[in-house]
Design a protein around this nucleic acid. Structure first.
Length: 468
RNA sequence: GGCCCCAUCGUCUAGCGGUCUAGGACGUCGGCCUCUCACGCCGAAAACACGGGUUCGAGUCCCGUUGGGGUCACCA
């Protein structure tokens, strides 16, 4: 049997981090088993579903590299089929028409609330003759759910979960206006799409009991279920929009790499011994549902950033330059010159060692722009204002000026600066820090010898002289 | 509140009855390296929620308590 998984977001907002992880797990599971990863847009709520949300979700998945197989299925386009199934259930006696009005239902709900009890539809039309139907009331169609016994979910993550059928009421399959409910639509779509493994957040666990009843009513084989724990915010509460849950686009804007997000999300709730760094290629070989934990986990930005820093270091310098060029251009308000790009090509390897995000990287790369440094950090200013800064800088300048053009490289610069320090009877740091402040406007940067080499003789001396 | 789920360092987790004086990672704090920063390396503090069982033996199995979470629509 070919594995078919699916990610089924409702397009009422952006793709948040929890959805991204659900998609990831579905993707990995399908790939692991050589199956298909499908996308289904659950847009049956016409009031809340929006086109921009659909785009945001699709873009988010694409950006994360979670490409789906086949065309996305739009649930709303399948209403006829959902209605057809509801009618079949009506015909087979697994469903019935319910003429209870909204007012009646509201009363029941209020009564239940007054007694501090949960509202359960009482099945008042379950066995009534249709001839008793009131005039002018359009019926909803409800599932004739089993009243006795229990419904059991055999979940690949949660184990066996059971509930007494008395706890479940006859849910609505088709609304009075003839539109299908989510509960009906999911089951029909999962069945029609040949979904073999339903991997979703465990906020759906309670829905699963009812969905199983629909599968049973239709005589359809059950897919395997795997309910993965939710991701909570740093405070332990559910990650909600009000709680600062962000769309994946926000993480992109923070300068995070998709590979890093995939790795972080994978490890959030899944483990394979002590493995921490797992590429997606490796994850496809290793991912299993047994490795998924059963308790909710908290989202930890610091660890995500650390993972991101790791992937930054591993990245191809060219791809990073491509990624940050637009950011730098926005900052300097012009295109990068050939010289500047050339400097980045040489300097990137060590810049990327130091950045946690693309944003950091773009800022650190500014030192290689013409006209930089664009600002001076307080610490750099302090270094330059120090008592021995002038002497150090002068010694550095003397040493630098004496370097012939053909020796202007990392080794040559280092040799000259070290010799200059010795000649002036100063520690290397006494020349290096003021020079660094002058060249970069900061007290921290890649190797000074490298920075000077990348900048070239003229630009280096120009910057150094501004403080000399 | 009913029902369901969960419970190891601050966080993510390893652990699937004895090898646990509980391991790894992030973070934190020291130190080394060193032209600064970062990387890297070395080291430290830091956890089995509680109470009962079962067992020769429990972080690991069972029950309860407590705590946390989810869910209770003619939303998805």
């Amino acid at each position: 049997m070919t594995v078919v998984t699916r990610f089924a977001p409702s397009p009422t907002g952006f793709l948040h981090i929890g959805g991204a992880r659900t998609a990831l797990f579905n993707y990995l599971y399908a790939k692991r088993h050589g199956g298909k990863f499908m996308l289904r847009v659950e847009d049956t709520d016409r009031k809340r579903s929006t086109e921009p949300a659909i785009e945001a979700i699709l873009d988010g998945l694409r950006w994360l590299g979670l490409d789906w197989d086949d065309e996305p299925v739009f649930q709303f386009a399948r209403v006829d089929r959902h209605v057809e199934v509801a009618q079949a259930m009506l015909a087979s006696g697994h469903a019935y028409k319910c003429y209870a009005t909204n007012e009646e239902l509201a009363e029941l709900r209020a009564a239940a609330q007054a007694e501090n009890k949960r509202f359960l539809y009482d099945g008042r039309w379950r066995d009534r003759d249709p001839s008793e139907a009131p005039e002018g009331v359009k019926p909803a169609i409800r599932l004739k759910a089993p009243k006795d016994g229990e419904t059991v979910i055999t979940d690949l993550v949660q184990g066996e979960v059971r509930v007494a059928n008395a706890e479940l009421d006859d849910m609505v399959l088709l609304r009075a206006d003839g539109t299908p409910t989510y509960m009906l639509a999911v089951v029909v779509d999962d069945y029609d799409m040949g979904v073999t493994h339903v991997i979703r957040g465990d906020d759906h666990l309670n829905n699963t009991f009812r969905q199983i009843q629909v599968f049973n009513a239709m005589g359809w084989a059950l897919p395997a279920f795997a309910h993965i724990p939710l991701i909570h915010g740093a405070d332990g509460a559910k990650l909600s929009k009000r709680h600062g849950a962000l769309g994946v686009d926000a993480y992109r804007d923070m300068g995070l790499l998709p590979a890093a997000i995939r790795n972080y999300l994978l490890r959030l709730g899944w483990s394979h011994g002590d493995l921490e760094i797992v590429s997606t290629a490796d994850a496809i070989k290793l991912f299993d549902l047994e490795g998924v934990g059963r308790s909710a986990s908290r989202f930890d930005m610091a660890k995500l950033e650390n993972t991101n820093a790791h992937y930054m270091r591993e990245s191809d310098p060219k791809s990073l330059i491509e990624a940050i060029s637009p950011l730098i251009e926005a900052k300097i308000d012009r295109s990068l010159s050939v010289t500047e790009t050339a400097r980045l090509n040489i300097g990137m390897a060590s810049l990327q060692q130091r950045a946690k995000t693309l944003l950091d990287l773009a800022v650190s790369a500014e030192i290689y722009m013409d006209g930089a440094p664009f600002s001076q950090s307080p610490k750099a200013a302090k270094v330059l204002a120090g008592a021995d800064a002038t002497a150090g800088l002068a010694a550095a300048l003397t040493a630098l000026s004496a370097i012939p053009d053909d020796a202007w490289n990392e080794e040559g610069i280092e040799a000259a600066l070290r010799a200059g320090a010795e000649a002036a009877d100063l520690k290397l740091g006494k020349l290096a820090q003021p020079l660094r402040a002058a060249l970069t406007g900061s007290d921290a940067s890649p190797s000074l010898f490298e920075v000077a080499a990348v900048l070239g003789r003229d630009e280096t001396l120009r910057r150094a002289n501004m403080h000399g």
